[in-house]
Design a binder for these strands. Structure first.
Lengths: 373, 373
DNA sequence: TGCCTCTTCTAAACCGTTTTACTAAATCGT
DNA sequence: ACGATTTAGTAAAACGGTTTAGAAGAGGCA
């Protein structure tokens, strides 16, 4: 319990010279079998209290910190952790409030169940690296935000472990959770058409794993391998076409990364267009923030000169200037439910709900206004 | 590579009926020894290319996804992941931008090294639970943000693995990284005294593991077991005393959690004081945000009626309204360096720097002004 | 006393790999 | 053509625990 000099010295050079002590050594010290030491830790009812105490004393003397998790995992066939597979470098995930909220939800589920949470990057340093994935000692996977043609998805599934797909097209035999991206996106577009807008621009995050920034034509949009991108663009398309606006004339600027900074480029490209769009729809709040920033820098004002609608409703949207009109989706709950769906599988409980769609809604704030045009 | 019906069917019921295939079964299928199959995966130069292909074919036929990470970990005595131990529930970490940035830095380091990142909550559901910690299969620990009397720190160290302490008092034999909290805090207080303020209030996050919100007297401040809290308060104290202000008269309100919402309580308590403080120092930006929010709700304005200085300089500080004057510290770099210090130990490289202090600086923005008082 | 049930502990199999030391066959240099 | 090296593959010992089946002894009951 205490941090006393003795114990911290023991840490540096364990009594058994250098190497970490093992259960076998503790058994030898006490003069009992390995099974008994194991029982002392795992099934106190299997030995006398007095012997149990002697075991723990010997353990402390030897600097033995308890059964090795790896060995235990091997024997018990469960590691006590689940893996969360993210499409890209983790630093991108941490920089995206929506992803962070999702992980927050997952972490609530893992803590409920007493499990650890292993974060697994899908790619780093540009190349996709199955190394970390394939050497991840976990009991199951939450597959988050992966492109549908990403070989890592198939590789993960091949490990034949419980898994949950998040924001991805369903795969037979694997439960999924997400939102109706297309319907949600329609809400955003319809809000703007109902305010009288006829001239649009769209800012999207990446459509495919290795995208470059730039305008994306309809073919590219329809072939996008990130489900959220593809479905949201489809949603905008159908709402605008329904309002009699030709989607072919709507410029869609794809940003290679979902960070505010990237939207500055998009703004430059879209604001230069003639006629200048009166309304911009972004597939994420992050991009909307960046876009608004750039608009202000250009000396225009929101929503007077140009209306902006985002997607995600991260907390900062409410505090933005002006407050961002956007589509709400329950990120934390998505993570929580995904985590629980996975954990239910681990317990081999009744087959969990297999396809969950969470509700979304339009949140009207101050970044979109009626156009005078 | 492809997601075709065959492979997804294979996933559900592997050819070897139910159970996951093992390396031994693959060996039997090909008619070679286990060593050879192992070599096919790990040391291609040890067998003929043709045999290697046959091994992989058999593996695919049997639905074998490659060597089991746990077994491999046991044999090789390394798991390919490091653990990040956080003081509390992970959801608190994810809700705190400073912690998220720290993890972002750590993740960069782990990806550089091809390691996974296991997040370990120190406590959940109120009780401190060593279960997840003790069953974490990792090669080392980043110990982040723990109270110095937390038994989990000692428990971690007892595992005799490489570790790095972050924002905690040094322990012999364990490298640490952090900032000079006391000096940094002095900067904040001195900025306000230099603007003429004489009447102060302080908003702090928790001083100890299981704190309740409320005013904290000097004894409690000095006995705080979270180093950052204790040291920052000391910094404020020494700067104000140096300016001739009696610290005993400065109200310090402790918030039980480091979230903006909690600062509303603090604001209520501090604004009701007579005379009302003209300057508030917060030990985190999160609290400063919440405080500013509450001040505005109370019909006062910042910095005209009251000046606020934060701590951390999270990105949102620059976008706040008004932009927050605060103390900058390099969160991402802290995580990156901590991760690298740990990884260097794993590699048994030259003993890494053992005590790192990162630089801090005052960032003057718009939330603190000269007082007319 | 004899039989049965607890309690307390143990022997040994097993979890799925990697790695060391070794063998047998093929190739090389001269 | 012959010993020396290289190549290709193997047997078996770890790695550090958990768990099953069972033994030895103690106590209870008739």
């Amino acid at each position: 319990m205490d941090i006393n000099p003795e114990s911290s010295k023991a840490r540096q050079t364990s009594r058994v010279s250098g190497r970490r002590a093992t259960l076998k050594e503790v058994a030898a010290e006490v003069g009992v079998s390995r099974a008994t030491v194991s029982n002392a830790y795992n099934r106190p009812d299997q030995l006398s209290e007095e012997l149990r105490v002697r075991v723990f004393e010997a353990a402390r003397r030897l600097g033995y910190a308890g059964p090795d998790p790896t060995a235990r995992g091997l024997r018990k066939q469960r590691t006590g952790a689940i893996g969360a597979l993210y499409t890209d470098r983790l630093s991108y995930a941490f920089a995206d409030p929506a992803a962070v909220m999702f992980f927050e939800g997952v972490s609530v589920a893992t803590e409920e169940a007493g499990l650890g949470l292993l974060l697994i990057p899908g790619g780093s340093l540009g190349q996709r690296d199955p190394e970390i994935l394939m050497s991840a000692a976990v009991d199951g996977f939450v597959i988050f935000c992966m492109a549908e043609d990403d070989p890592l998805v198939e590789a993960t599934l091949r490990r034949q472990m419980p898994a949950v797909l998040v924001d991805q097209p369903p795969i037979e035999g694997v439960p999924s959770i997400g939102i109706d991206d297309e319907a949600a996106a329609r809400l955003a577009a319809e809000h703007l058409t109902s305010l009288g807008h006829r001239s649009f621009g769209v800012v999207s995050f990446d459509l495919d794993k290795d995208s470059k920034s730039g305008f994306a034509d309809i073919d590219k949009q329809h072939a996008a391998t990130y489900l959220p991108s593809r479905a949201r663009l489809r949603g905008y398309e159908s709402a605008l076409e329904a309002a009699g606006i030709s989607w072919a004339d709507v410029p869609v600027y794809e940003c290679a990364e979902n960070v505010p900074g990237m939207a500055a480029e998009a703004a430059e490209a879209l604001l230069a267009l003639a006629p200048r769009p009166t309304a911009i729809i972004a597939t994420s709040d992050q991009l909307a923030f960046g876009f608004m920033e750039a608009v202000k820098k250009a000396g225009l004002s929101i929503p007077e000169d140009i209306s902006v609608v985002g997607f995600d409703d991260v907390p900062e949207a409410a505090r933005a200037n002006p407050p961002l009109t956007t589509i709400h989706q329950p990120h934390v709950e998505k993570g929580l439910r995904a985590g629980r769906m996975l954990i239910a599988q681990l317990r081999e409980e009744e087959p969990p709900e297999t396809q969950v769609l969470l509700p979304t809604r339009l949140v009207v704030r101050g970044s979109a206004a009626r156009t005078d045009h």
